[in-house]
Design a protein around this nucleic acid. Structure first.
Lengths: 247, 247
DNA sequence: CGCTATCTTGACGCGAGTCAATAGTGGTGG
DNA sequence: CCACCACTATTGACTCGCGTCAAGATAGCG
């Protein structure tokens, strides 16, 4: 896929004109995305309404409360979905990594702030166009439903984690999930990237920055992980970690 | 499939034979369910694959890990979706009340135990039949997607509650949500029913039974609610309660 | 090379969990 | 119809873990 270099939230037209072999067919994350297992015709119709977008780190893609006009597939980088209550308490609902689909919601407005953690490449679709396509291609809508259901499962697992796990268990669980997702994108490297600062991990796991830091230190002390850098974790003892997360 | 008359999970046949005016058209909860706003043709096709089921209190509809062969719409009563970890920690993912759709999941097996809290009436559909119908009627699949998205939103809100709210806030929030749902089913009565024991509320909110009890007492002491019975709550000061839940 | 933001580490207090006892409730059988 | 029993809910006392506040270390950046 060859999108323009970037600078500001940049937007390219649908690429050529949805010719027989568009960029989607070469997409790195296609096997992960909603686009997987779509027919040639469906892919072409999707491509016709899609546009690519590159976000610089820190770019705000959407704010909670704004009208929801697009949905996205992340092809590179990482997004954060966060919510802030009136009195300042913050909850990070999740992180969107390559292959993830962002923007599914029952509400007409965004329920979360969506922000780029690193330079991030997106594939953008209009919600209305997506809806039309869904009606025309039941298969595509089926994919969307499947994706929503998977998200739902994962949200409910996260509930279990928040409600019933100790801080250390939550951190271990989080690291293992991240490792799994990174492996699925093709990088089974021994060391996993943490594209987000500690505060985001804390707000994701319902903890404080200090507790996250302490838990990471504890896991390192126990020899379960190594921390080669602030934004990098190496899982030394996956079995030991898994025995902690105690699902 | 023909089940025994009753006493165990009992099941009535699809009613007549899906004639032009089936029971779905008279369904009490249709305005809430996935069946709302379906065409006559769609309703008829749905009816043809649906069967009614009545569960006695305490009946287990599904266990986590079992193959997921049906989805359900609750028409009366209440279900509990719960998950128990290997070491016994329990998390109640949610309660299904009349109008709710149960069984959406990305996994081929149930992720939760599903149990009837009271005598409960269900409308049952085979997952495969539902999938076929979804392909044939994009509108229906759209409804399912919408439902899944709404569930997703609500799961994410629950995450916020679990991660960042104090016990009292969680209980207040829970009561208000229950009241809202009960109002939507047509009963705006001053007193709301708690079909579940304290332990279920606790496991839903990530608390202990004792803490739930203390929080309820605290809310009562502050004059925000009354507790006419163990399984009944009256909201005396909705505004005061809302100011607690602090979204 | 110094500044600033982030991360780590330490000390302390409070609030929710735990354990234990009492009160209430519903159901059963005498 | 009432008395008893089992189960659930409530209340109380205590402990401990995580949040809070504060200080120091590290790293990224100009």
């Amino acid at each position: 896929m060859s999108w323009p270099p970037f600078d500001s939230p940049c937007l390219t037209p649908p690429t050529e004109d949805a010719g027989p072999i568009g960029p989607c067919l070469h997409c790195q994350v296609r096997h992960l995305a909603v686009c997987s297992a779509l027919s040639r015709e469906e892919i072409q119709a999707l491509e016709a309404t899609a546009s690519a977008q590159v976000l610089a780190p820190g770019t705000v893609l959407a704010r909670q409360g704004e009208a929801r006009r697009h949905v996205y597939t992340v092809t590179r980088g990482a997004l954060r979905l966060a919510r802030v209550s009136a009195d300042g308490r913050r909850q990070v609902a999740g992180f969107a990594l390559p292959g993830d689909f962002v923007g599914l919601s029952g509400a007409p407005t965004h329920q979360h702030d969506i922000e780029a953690l690193a330079e991030t490449e997106l594939c953008r679709f209009g919600t209305d166009a997506m809806q039309r396509l869904g009606t025309r291609f039941p298969h595509l809508q089926g994919k969307l439903l499947e994706r929503a259901c998977v998200e739902l499962d994962s949200a409910r697992e996260q509930m279990m984690s928040l409600a019933r796990m100790t801080p250390t268990e939550r951190v271990a669980d989080f690291l293992l999930k991240l490792a799994g997702r990174q492996a699925r994108t093709g990088d089974p490297g021994p060391s996993i990237a943490l594209p987000m600062p500690r505060a985001d991990i804390a707000d994701h796991l319902g903890l404080t920055v200090e507790t996250v830091s302490r838990c990471l230190t504890a896991l390192r002390t126990r020899g379960l992980i190594a921390l080669p850098g602030t934004y990098r974790v190496e899982i030394l003892d996956p079995t030991g970690l898994k025995s902690l997360e105690a699902a």
